[in-house]
Design a protein around this nucleic acid. Structure first.
Lengths: 256, 256
DNA sequence: ACGAGCGTATCGTTGAGCGAGACGAAGTGC
DNA sequence: GCACTTCGTCTCGCTCAACGATACGCTCGT
C-alpha cells in the first residue's frame, strides 16, 4: 500500500505539473478506485494537492525533500562557492550527487539566457556521458568497474560507448583532476567538472560548468573549478570528522 | 498506514540528519515494531536510507521534493533574478511561498559570511514577523483577516504583536510596495521584501534581502527588489495565461 | 554481573486496503 | 439528438497484510 502511494508520487516526471487521475492510473497501472483513494489520502497528508485539472505535488513534498540531510547540508556548504563560480564565469553551474549509476542534480545556477541544457534540479543523467558523472567514475574504482562492465547507452553521436576509450579518458581525468564532456549528453553542450572529495578521498559530490560548444572554453575555468571543488571538499571533510558517523557516503545503493 | 509512514518522514526536522529508530518512536508515538517495519519499507522505496547511526531522508526524497511543480518552476523562473540581486548587493537573498499562515523558504542565496539567520531552504517562519510574510499579508485581504484575527506570537522584543499596529504597517507596505522587518523574527536581522504578484495580482511568492542590522540598509535595495519582483511576476503571469489551469494558487490550505 | 536501552524477529488477530462494479456528468462523433 | 466513451466518485463484500504484544540478543554504562 505504501508502495502504491509512492508509485503515484513517482508518476510525476520532472516536467509534469498536473496529472489527472486517469493519467495516474495509466502510468502506475493501479486500479482506478485504488488510485482515487490513495490520492485522496495523499491530499489529506498534504503531499499532493488537487488542482483544477488534477493532482500536483504540493509544497509539503518540497519541504520534505529539502530535509534530505545529505543534499541539504551539501547545498548549504557549497552554495557560496557555486555563487562565486557563477559570478566569475557567468556560465551555468551545476552541483550533483551520485545515486546508483546516475547523477542527481542538486543545484543549478545560470543566467537569464540559460543554455538549452537537459539538466534540471532533481533530475537525473547517466554517469558515463556527463562531466559530473565522469568526475565520480574517475575517483571511484568500484563504481567504474560496475559501469564499464554494463552497457553504455548512446545519447548523441559523440557519446563514448567504448569501455576502453572511456577508461582511458577517466585515467586522464585523474591526472588532470578535471573531467570534460563534449556534446556527449546533448548536442551543442560542453561541460567541465571536478569531484568534491570527502575525508577518505571518495567522491562525495561534483561541481561542473556548462556552456554552448560554440563559445564555451572549459580550459579557462579549470583552475577556478578545482579550487571550488577542493574548498567544498575541505568543508565536507571537516563536517564529517567533527559531528558524525564517519562511514556513510551518499548513494551507496547499486544501480536502479 | 500511509499516515504513519508520513509521520515518520515528517519526524525529521530541518536540522536533523540521522535519527535512530528509538528516537523516531519517541517523536511519532508509534509502536516500535511498527516503526521498524515502516522504516524498512521506506528504505526499500528509497525514501529513507539506513546510516551507521540510524535513518536519514535519502536522495530519492530530495528528488521527489524537487518535482513539486509550483516550487520547482518558480525556482527556475526566479533564479536568474535572485542571482542578479545577489550579485548586485552581496546580501542574503530569499525566495518564499506561502503555505497556511507560514512562509516556506524555496531558495536562499548568500555569501560565505552568511548572516546568522534562522531561515533555511525548506524551513518555515510565521507570516507576521518576517518581511516575506508581510509581503503576502499586505496583498491578500482574506489572509490578512485570518492572521490579524488569530494570536500573533512574539519572537523577539521587536515583534509586532498588536493587530492594529501590524495592520497599519501593512497599509504602508501597499503604499511603498516594499515590506520591512527590523529584528522582529531574530535579533540583529533586518529584512526587506517584495511580493511576486500573479496574473490576478495575488501574491504568488515573495523575494527578500536580509542582512545584519548594524550594516544593512534596506532602503538602498528597494528599487532593485521591486524590479526583480515585477520581472518574476511577469514571467509567472505569462506562464499562467499560456499553458494552464488559471485558478490555482500555491498554499490554498488554511492554517496548519 | 546486572540492567537499561536498542534493534530485530515471530505470530495470531482483525481491521483496513483491495478491486469489481455501478453511477452520473461531461464530452465526442455522427 | 443519440449512442458511445472517458472521467471522477462511491459502495460493498472479501481477503490479506498491517498491527502490536512479546521475546531475544546485543551493547553499553556502572
Amino acid at each position: 500500500m505504501l508502495a502504491k502511494a509512492v508509485a503515484i508520487l513517482r508518476a510525476f516526471a520532472v516536467d509534469d505539473t498536473d496529472l489527472s487521475l486517469a493519467e495516474l492510473v495509466r502510468r502506475t497501472g493501479l486500479h482506478k478506485a485504488t488510485a482515487f483513494r490513495l490520492c485522496a489520502q495523499l491530499v489529506e497528508l498534504r503531499l499532493l494537492e488537487k488542482s483544477a485539472v488534477g493532482y500536483r505535488l504540493s509544497a509539503g513534498m518540497f519541504e520534505l525533500g529539502m530535509r534530505a540531510s545529505v543534499e541539504r547540508s551539501l547545498l548549504e556548504l557549497a552554495m557560496p562557492f557555486l555563487q562565486d563560480l557563477y559570478e566569475r564565469t557567468h556560465e551555468v553551474v551545476h552541483l550533483g550527487v551520485r545515486e546508483g549509476h546516475e547523477v542527481v542534480y542538486v543545484a543549478k545556477l545560470g543566467g537569464h539566457r540559460q543554455v538549452r541544457s537537459p539538466s534540471r534540479v532533481g533530475g537525473r543523467m547517466p554517469l558515463h556521458c556527463t562531466a559530473l558523472g565522469k568526475a565520480f567514475l574517475a575517483y571511484d574504482a568500484d563504481l567504474r568497474r560496475e559501469v564499464l562492465g554494463g552497457p553504455l547507452t548512446r545519447r548523441t553521436p559523440h557519446t563514448v560507448v567504448e569501455p576502453r576509450r572511456l577508461s582511458r579518458q577517466l585515467a586522464t581525468v585523474r591526472q588532470q583532476q578535471v573531467a570534460f564532456e563534449r556534446e556527449e549528453s546533448a548536442l551543442g553542450l560542453t561541460c567541465v567538472a571536478v569531484p568534491v572529495l570527502d575525508r577518505l578521498d571518495r567522491p562525495y559530490a561534483a561541481i561542473s560548468l556548462a556552456g554552448p560548444t560554440t563559445r564555451f572554453r572549459p580550459e579557462n575555468h579549470q583552475h577556478a573549478l578545482r579550487a571550488a571543488g577542493a574548498a567544498v571538499g575541505a568543508l565536507v571533510a571537516r563536517r564529517q570528522s567533527t559531528s558524525g558517523d564517519g562511514m556513510s557516503a551518499p548513494g551507496t545503493s547499486p544501480g536502479r
